[in-house]
Structure formats: structure tokens, C-alpha cells
Amino acid sequence: MFDDRSPIYRQIAERIKGDILSGALAEGAQVMSTNQFAVAYRINPATAAKGLQSLVDEDILYKRRGVGMFVSADARERLRTRHRERFFTDVVDPMITEAETIGVPLDDVVDHIRQHEIGEPS
């Protein structure tokens, strides 16, 4: 389920964020408990707790004492905003570098994107 390549708690946090972005986890929905995460993914409960806590620190989740953790009301919108801000550096810039490396003219790249825009993906 997890690779050993980055801290597992961070992978848990990313997975939950992904579920919130895709809508699989609705705002206000309860997320699994630390122990449920530990059992489901066969990880130490302290690791699961660290992953969840990092999302509480970012206000993506909030705690209700004795009940559990829930998705914050504006979590999805804030995640979308944050990912939009990073979109060009994380996605577009590496694409441009790759295009230059292998000799794809940027005009071709732009044309390709435009085709998507007018609804004719090649």
C-alpha cells in the first residue's frame, strides 16, 4: 500500500487530501480513526496519528473530542487553491523542460493544449 520512499505519515496525509480533492471524502465527513488506519494499512498507530495530526495542523481536518476527526468545511476549496498555485511550477515547468530536452517545439505543445480547449483532444 505504501512505498518505503517517503515518510508514511506524509503518504497518509497526501492520500486523504487526494480523497478530499476528488470528492470521495466530502466536507464534514468523518475520516477513519488512527486505529482504523493502523489496521487497514498495517502501520504503527503513532505514524497514522502523525499523518492525521498534520492535516489538523493545516486545518484540513478538525477534531471533535471523543468522536473523531472530520473534513473541514472549506477544505476542498483551500486544497484546490493551493494546488492551483503550485500547478505551473509542479506540472507545467517540468513539461517545458522535458519538451526542450527531447526537441518538441513549444508551439506544438501550445497547439496540443489549444486542441483540448476547443474540445478536440487528439
Partner: peptide, 30 residues
């Protein structure tokens, strides 16, 4: 180590009778 490391909260590495490292498994990965 690989198949069980996700269960560890902390990792202790011994070598030649001495302590090489003792820290949280997540910190070690980082």
C-alpha cells in the same frame, strides 16, 4: 526490514555491540 518497517514507531540500530542510531522510523526515512 522492508516488509515490517511500517510497524515500527522507533528504530534502534546496533553495530559491533554499540548503538549506531535510535530515532523514530519516520524521521529516519526523512
Amino acid at each position: 526490514i522492508e516488509e515490517v518497517s511500517s510497524l515500527f514507531e522507533e528504530v534502534v540500530i546496533l553495530d559491533r555491540g554499540g548503538l549506531v542510531l535510535h530515532e523514530s522510523a519516520d524521521d529516519m526515512r526523512e
